[in-house]
């Protein structure tokens, strides 16, 4: 079984991710609309931005998909003229990379809530590292920083874990995932022989 990404996997991943890119773009205004409230309510919805990676991975289940998905989603968001500008591309790359590393640690064999939540949390850590340099979050008051991180972690588990799993379950029920999974793994191989 070849685990390399075929054009089909790449295109499906990118199309899913561009869809998420549109969602990310809509999410931006919502995010900075709740942000001035000050006590970091915005961080609860931050997890949405890690979702493309886990949803795409759960659908296609191949190495490299999570990274590609997050990069594609962020470039989609970027090319639509995101308010966050260039920042989204770099955050996308780092978040995708961190999610990918965690899925790799599970050897791409686990597709359950725990694995994807952990991947989300890994992305979340990546984004916090960037925030530390870019947003000086280390210079927030301690209680405020803890609130900031806790809200972001909670949001991450809700979006990248629970919501991603339930979306993919619903997609499995429509039968569309079989199209991508089986054709790239079993059917094509049997044709090749």
């Amino acid at each position: 079984m070849s685990n390399r990404l075929k054009l089909t996997d790449i295109l499906v991943t990118i199309v899913i991710s561009i869809g998420f890119g549109i969602l990310y773009k809509i999410w931006g205004p919502l995010y900075y609309a709740v942000k001035p409230l000050g006590i970091h309510i915005d961080q609860l919805i931050y997890g949405m931005w890690f979702m493309a990676a886990t949803v795409a991975f759960l659908i296609i289940r191949k190495p490299g998909v999570a990274l590609l998905a997050e990069v594609a989603a962020s470039s989609g968001e970027f090319l639509m003229g995101s308010e966050f500008g260039l920042e989204v591309l770099l955050y996308g790359i780092i978040q995708g990379l961190f999610a990918e590393l965690l899925l790799m640690a599970f050897r791409y064999k686990r597709y359950d809530l725990l694995a994807v939540s952990m991947a989300g949390i890994s992305s979340c850590i990546g984004s916090l590292i960037l925030d530390f340099y870019k947003g000086y979050i280390g210079d927030l008051s301690t209680w405020n920083l803890i609130l900031y991180m806790a809200f972001r972690f909670i949001g991450t588990i809700l979006f990248t874990g629970v919501l991603a799993i339930s979306i993919v379950k619903a997609l499995e029920a429509t039968g569309v995932t079989n199209l991508v999974r089986s054709s790239s793994q079993k059917d094509f191989n049997s044709l090749d022989q």
Partner: peptide, 23 residues
């Protein structure tokens, strides 16, 4: 949930068809 599911499933189907043609 009623929005992303049909949107995603249609997109995946369409992407798959295009990818086959491109291959």
């Amino acid at each position: 949930k009623s929005l992303p599911i049909p949107l995603l499933s249609q997109s995946i189907r369409r992407a798959f068809r295009i990818a086959v043609a491109m291959e």
